[in-house]
């Protein structure tokens, strides 16, 4: 990756992280930890990968993105706002009455949101349905979905995986956010969903394991995924929950808690440093 491209993506990821902190702080509720862990991949998706146009958010030929771990909507909204799907000021209306930015994504309200999701496991199936529909219609769009590692405890994730492999959906790319934590504690203690790589391989996926905070690895993975024929790809992405805010990193307690004013100021100072 060229230095200028990496710097652009790093700046976008930084902006997304700042947006996430400001959104959740303004809402006084929400999910900062898992939003911060996917900030880099969201920057890559909306900064470089996805064929989407903010001026035509319903273009039938666009790539699709489904945030199956919909509670990390602050990261999606930040990416969409940074990309120009709606004004950035709107981010501060997150979770408030009358806002287009619901606690979990609503495709009928928010420009750029391709599927309403948030009840865990459902989004990944919907994404597979979009990929199948693309194949049937002879379109060349691709479908991306981010699934949480905790979310992968839901059986539906594996029903959808079986489906995607069975129908050879090579236009389907599942990104697993392996941040290692869920609400009640470390995944290894609550309900161990690992090993993910072996499971997706057994389900018929081409699997790529990467560091989800390294843009070179993210780019290589997405490029590799596009060369795979006859099977879907799963990118198992090791991440740090709360990445970028020191006191949130790897802390279970920051799954679904908003920073207070003081914490917000500290978080923004770190991100802006």
């Amino acid at each position: 990756m060229e230095k200028s491209t990496r710097e652009t993506l790093q700046q976008l990821a930084k902006n997304i992280r700042i947006d996430i902190v400001e959104e959740v702080a303004a809402a006084k509720s929400g999910h900062p930890g898992g939003s911060l862990s996917i900030a880099d991949v969201m920057a890559y998706l909306y900064g470089k990968e996805l064929r989407v146009d903010p001026k035509d958010p319903r273009d039938p030929d666009r790539d699709r993105f489904v945030l199956s771990k919909g509670h990390c909507a602050p990261a999606l909204y930040a990416a969409l706002a940074e990309k120009g799907f709606f004004p950035k000021e709107e981010l501060l209306t997150l979770r408030k009455m009358g806002s287009r930015l619901q606690g979990h994504p609503d495709m009928t309200l928010t420009p750029g949101v391709d599927m309403s999701a948030g009840s865990l496991g459902l989004g990944v199936s919907a994404a597979a349905g979009m990929a199948l529909a693309g194949k049937i219609a002879g379109k060349d769009y691709r479908v991306y979905t981010i699934v949480g590692d905790g979310e992968s405890e839901e059986g539906q994730v594996w029903e959808a995986s079986m489906f995607a492999a069975h129908y050879k959906l090579d236009n389907f790319c599942l990104i697993l956010d392996w941040n290692g934590l869920q609400i009640d504690g470390p995944i290894a203690e609550v309900m161990n969903s690992a090993p993910h790589k072996e499971k997706f391989e057994a389900f018929g996926f081409h699997v790529i394991s990467i560091d989800g905070h390294d843009f070179d690895q993210i780019e290589a993975a997405f490029n590799e995924a596009k060369t795979v024929k006859g099977k879907p790809t799963a990118i198992v992405m090791k991440t740090v929950k709360g990445k970028g805010v020191s006191f949130m990193e790897n802390q279970v307690g920051w799954h679904g808690k908003a920073p207070n004013e003081e914490q917000k100021i500290q978080a923004l100072a770190e991100l802006n440093a």
């Binding site: 495709m107 919907a126 529909a133 539906q156």
Partner: peptide, 23 residues
């Protein structure tokens, strides 16, 4: 016609995903 196998929850969400494309 597409058989979804014995996985009705997945079938309903897959159907929804297909429907988002206008079908």
């Amino acid at each position: 016609f597409f058989d979804c196998g014995i996985a009705e929850g997945n079938m309903m969400s897959v159907a929804a995903g297909i429907a988002t494309t206008g079908k």
